[in-house]
């Protein structure tokens, strides 16, 4: 039974075909954004440490994140292009976008309360670190980042979908069905 969830047929028939096209666009964009910080160390390791694409990606992400070495996750001995907390937020956001159709409708909170709950673990971690009560570690940074990212995705996914539908009104499943019925009637 559980294995059916991971079979390609199940994924295509139920997730891809029934999801709206804007939702699929959003999943793809979130995945690209999530993967982008991992690329510079991978490129540096596989191609050459001084390859231009890797350094351009580091420069691009330096506008978003402090990239402090001691606060970043490392791959092949090189830091990712964003810090551990940002990595957590991006991975959490991607997970949240994927899980949003299954879970976010079960939560009935006002947006302000939801944002407050999403930010709370991160703020507590930062505050305790600043006050010297508990030192923030890579694990706490990633964990609080993931919590924030998942919750942000739960709030924003329906809104992004709603606004993308104006530009991409086509429903993926309906379009596929239309093509299918057309070929059947010919």
């Amino acid at each position: 039974m559980l294995l059916r969830f991971f079979s390609p047929t199940f994924l295509i028939d139920t997730v891809v075909m029934k999801a709206s096209f804007p939702y699929i666009v959003l999943v793809c964009l979130a995945f690209i954004w999530c993967i982008a910080p991992v690329l510079p160390p991978m490129l540096a390791w596989h191609v050459s440490p001084a390859n231009p694409l890797s350094s351009q990606l580091y420069t691009w992400f330096s506008h978003i994140c402090h990239q402090v070495d001691s606060r970043s996750l490392h791959l092949f001995g090189m830091k990712l292009s964003v810090c551990a907390r940002c990595s957590g937020i991006y991975v959490g956001f991607f997970l949240g976008v994927v899980l949003s159709p299954f879970l976010s409708r079960r939560v009935s909170l006002s947006a302000i309360k939801w944002w407050a709950l999403a930010l709370l673990p991160m703020l507590i971690d930062i505050a305790l670190d600043v006050l010297g009560i508990h030192s923030s570690t890579i694990v706490t940074r990633v964990a609080t980042g993931v919590v924030f990212g998942v919750n942000a995705a739960f709030i924003l996914t329906p809104l992004i979908e709603e606004s993308l539908e104006k530009f991409i009104p086509m429903n993926w499943g309906q379009r596929k069905q239309g093509v299918f019925y057309e070929s059947q009637t010919r």
Partner: peptide, 14 residues
């Protein structure tokens, strides 16, 4: 309307 995510995909019965 409150937040309305896209409907959950169809769950197959055991």
């Amino acid at each position: 309307q409150p937040l309305q995510p896209s409907p959950p995909p169809f769950m197959p019965q055991a």
